[in-house]
Write a protein that binds this DNA or RNA. Structure first.
Lengths: 228, 228
DNA sequence: CGGGGCATTGAGACCCGTCAACGGGCGTGG
DNA sequence: CCACGCCCGTTGACGGGTCTCAATGCCCCG
């Protein structure tokens, strides 16, 4: 599958703008003394593979995709980051993946150097750094199981249940911020297969699709059964 | 693919035995004051999914597989841990995957409670914990790209190059500690496909197979090209 | 020599990818 | 206001890469 030609930028509504923030506005890693907040328009890059990793990031509003590309344009989305999620974690001084805003997003940034300096004096902070890395690792490992061993139906079921849990188990239908292409690249499938699985699930009354970006989970138990 | 019936235990040569060790014998996370060393026979469990995560582990000699199972027996190996690798990292107090010795192995253990207590006073140690989690995360993300977007040939090429780099770039041929089933479960394939890809690569003079567990990389450049 | 575990090989089936056409929503501009 | 174009998603036909099933071979060890 080659679709580098599809890496369209849509229509970025605004350029990233910087806005200082008094912080302590809920950075998940810990309450931190200083942070910047930036707005990223839909489909704009937050950082690229091999960029210097100067910041840690937290989603305040919106959604972000982290991904890798192969030289021929194949893309694997490693994770979607939603409100409250930390991303940009890396061991070295460079990022090992790229990140883009899926929709217009507001992102909190904290300098890694600041965080690390603080962590050297604050065991609580150091611990929460380690915890958030370990959490991302667990998520990645669940994702490995999905990509390595689940079929298309199971992948979609897992994805929908996960999104439902993260987007707020309360509100139904789920409002998906990402396109079919994003979903496909997250699940290791093609847009066509994603589309077919969704219509299958709608036909078997597991879900309803009020619109292409809205999914109502009609029979979550059945979805769980599909998901193994 | 169902092969829970294949989860044979082989013939464990010895039961795990405990042997105290003065430690500081190269625990990658850092020089640590106390550690235990245990021997695990081939195919014996080191910890299981949902076990309480009491220890951090480092491979001294041998090889370990970390994996998850689906209810119907499908298995995904998340990583192979070789000499020097840290595993058993988790955010919560329980493991989220299982670990077994691939071959008879000698494993260093350190109590998590000890490590965390020390980390609270030793920023260097705290940092190395975070680093090792982040490194594992990067490895997992590379693995995601492989499982989500690479074909069987590319997966095998990536696997062989990775093993060559890790097992010691010097010695050729590589001595693989794991079976075809292990490789298949690591790469999200079947043993038959793994076998076919290897014979293909042998037929095209990219590799040689002196025995099923030994692989000589005859044309690493060609392998790199296959790996994208 | 016989047996078991592991790996290889072949034939056929199937899931999903590829290619192509169509449709629907929405903004733009005539 | 409506036509048009663009983006995105859906649907269908078809082919191919990988899985499944089965038989055979190899090697070690009893």
């Amino acid at each position: 599958m080659r679709y580098s030609h599809m890496r369209d930028e849509g229509r970025p509504e605004t350029m990233p703008t910087l806005e200082r923030v008094s912080s302590r506005s809920g950075f998940d890693v810990s309450r931190l003394p200083v942070a910047a907040c930036m707005r990223f328009a839909r489909n704009t890059e937050i950082f690229g593979e091999d960029d210097r990793a100067e910041y840690l990031y937290t989603v305040r509003t919106g959604a972000v995709r982290g991904y890798k590309l192969l030289s021929d344009g194949r893309r694997q989305i490693e994770a979607f980051y939603l409100s409250g999620d930390v991303f940009g974690i890396t061991a070295g001084d460079r990022h090992h993946c790229s990140a883009e805003a899926v929709v217009n997003s507001s992102i909190l940034l904290v300098k890694r150097s600041t965080v690390e300096a603080l962590a050297a004096r604050d065991p609580q902070l150091a611990r929460s750094l380690w915890i958030s890395a370990a959490e991302r690792l667990e998520q990645a490992q669940e994702h490995l199981l999905l990509l390595g061993r689940k079929n298309a139906h199971e992948r979609l079921a897992a994805f929908l249940l996960d999104m439902a849990a993260r987007c707020g188990a309360t509100r139904n239908p789920i409002e998906l911020p990402m396109s079919r292409q994003d979903i496909a690249d997250y699940l290791g499938l093609t847009i066509e297969t994603v589309s077919r699985m969704l219509t299958d699930m709608a036909n078997t009354a597991m879900i309803e699709l009020p619109s292409s970006r809205r999914v109502l989970l009609r029979d979550a138990a059945a979805l769980s059964r599909v998901n193994c």
